[in-house]
Simulated scan of single mutants.
Amino acid sequence: MSVSTLVTAERDTEAGTLHQRILNDIEGKIVSGEWPIGHRIPFEVDLAREYGCSRMTVNKVLTQLARAGLIERVKKSGSFVSQPHTQSAVLEISDIRKEVESLKLPYAFNVPRVAKRKAQGADRLLLDVPVGTAILDITCVHLAGGKPFCLEQRLINLSSVEGVDQADFTKIPPGQWLLSQVPWSSAEHRIHAAAADATTAEQLGIAQGTACLVIERRTWSAGAAVTQVRLTYPGDRHALVATFTPSS
Score class of each variant (00 low, 15 high):
residue 188 E to P: 08
residue 71 I to N: 09
residue 119 A to W: 01
residue 104 K to R: 13
residue 180 S to Q: 11
residue 237 R to F: 00
residue 59 N to P: 07
residue 181 Q to G: 05
residue 133 T to M: 08
residue 205 G to A: 13
residue 122 A to Q: 09
residue 147 K to H: 15
residue 152 E to S: 14
residue 71 I to H: 05
residue 19 H to I: 08
residue 163 G to N: 10
residue 148 P to T: 05
residue 143 L to Q: 07
residue 220 W to F: 15
residue 220 W to S: 01
residue 18 L to K: 12
residue 66 A to Q: 10
residue 131 V to C: 06
residue 234 P to A: 07
residue 87 Q to F: 12
residue 53 C to R: 14
residue 146 G to T: 06
residue 200 T to D: 00
residue 196 A to D: 04
residue 202 E to I: 12
residue 19 H to G: 04
residue 44 E to F: 11
residue 138 I to E: 01
residue 5 T to P: 04
residue 191 I to Y: 02
residue 147 K to A: 14
residue 188 E to W: 14
residue 188 E to N: 12
residue 227 T to Q: 04
residue 122 A to S: 13
residue 216 E to N: 12
residue 71 I to Y: 05
residue 203 Q to E: 14
residue 244 F to H: 08
residue 174 P to I: 00
residue 61 V to M: 04
residue 87 Q to V: 05
residue 103 L to Q: 10
residue 157 N to R: 01
residue 203 Q to M: 15
residue 73 R to G: 10
residue 221 S to T: 14
residue 167 A to E: 00
residue 172 I to Q: 12
residue 102 S to E: 09
residue 115 A to K: 09
residue 224 A to H: 10
residue 92 E to K: 11
residue 1 M to I: 06
residue 109 F to S: 00
residue 41 I to F: 03
residue 79 S to R: 05
residue 52 G to D: 10
residue 191 I to R: 05
residue 94 S to M: 07
residue 117 R to K: 03
residue 161 V to Y: 06
residue 197 D to T: 03
residue 139 T to Y: 09
residue 48 A to Q: 09
residue 200 T to G: 02
residue 118 K to G: 06
residue 239 A to L: 15
residue 26 I to Q: 00
residue 164 V to M: 14
residue 245 T to M: 12
residue 136 L to A: 06
residue 92 E to Q: 05
residue 126 L to S: 09
residue 156 I to Y: 08
residue 240 L to F: 14
residue 231 L to H: 04
residue 166 Q to C: 10
residue 48 A to I: 00
residue 74 V to Y: 11
residue 186 S to Y: 12
residue 227 T to L: 08
residue 117 R to E: 01
residue 2 S to I: 07
residue 24 N to G: 09
residue 121 G to S: 05
residue 177 W to E: 02
residue 4 S to F: 08
residue 136 L to C: 04
residue 4 S to C: 07
residue 129 V to E: 02
residue 211 A to Q: 09
residue 174 P to S: 15
residue 187 A to H: 12
residue 222 A to L: 12
residue 8 T to R: 15
residue 114 V to H: 03
residue 236 D to F: 09
residue 61 V to H: 03
residue 140 C to R: 13
residue 160 S to Y: 11
residue 56 M to H: 10
residue 86 T to W: 00
residue 214 V to C: 03
residue 222 A to M: 14
residue 72 E to R: 15
residue 177 W to M: 03
residue 62 L to C: 09
residue 236 D to C: 11
residue 110 N to E: 03
residue 76 K to T: 13
residue 140 C to K: 04
residue 44 E to D: 13
residue 112 P to A: 01
residue 106 P to C: 03
residue 125 L to M: 09
residue 25 D to W: 15
residue 241 V to Y: 02
residue 78 G to L: 11
residue 171 K to D: 08
residue 67 R to W: 10
residue 11 R to N: 11
residue 76 K to W: 13
residue 191 I to G: 11
residue 122 A to M: 08
residue 244 F to T: 13
residue 74 V to I: 15
residue 227 T to K: 04
residue 115 A to N: 05
residue 93 I to Y: 02
residue 171 K to Y: 03
residue 189 H to D: 14
residue 69 G to A: 14
residue 195 A to P: 01
residue 230 R to G: 07
residue 78 G to P: 09
residue 158 L to F: 05
residue 218 R to P: 00
residue 100 V to D: 00
residue 70 L to P: 15
residue 78 G to S: 11
residue 155 L to A: 09
residue 55 R to Y: 04
residue 94 S to L: 07
residue 63 T to Y: 06
residue 6 L to K: 06
residue 17 T to Q: 13
residue 226 V to C: 06
residue 33 G to D: 00
residue 215 I to V: 14
residue 232 T to D: 04
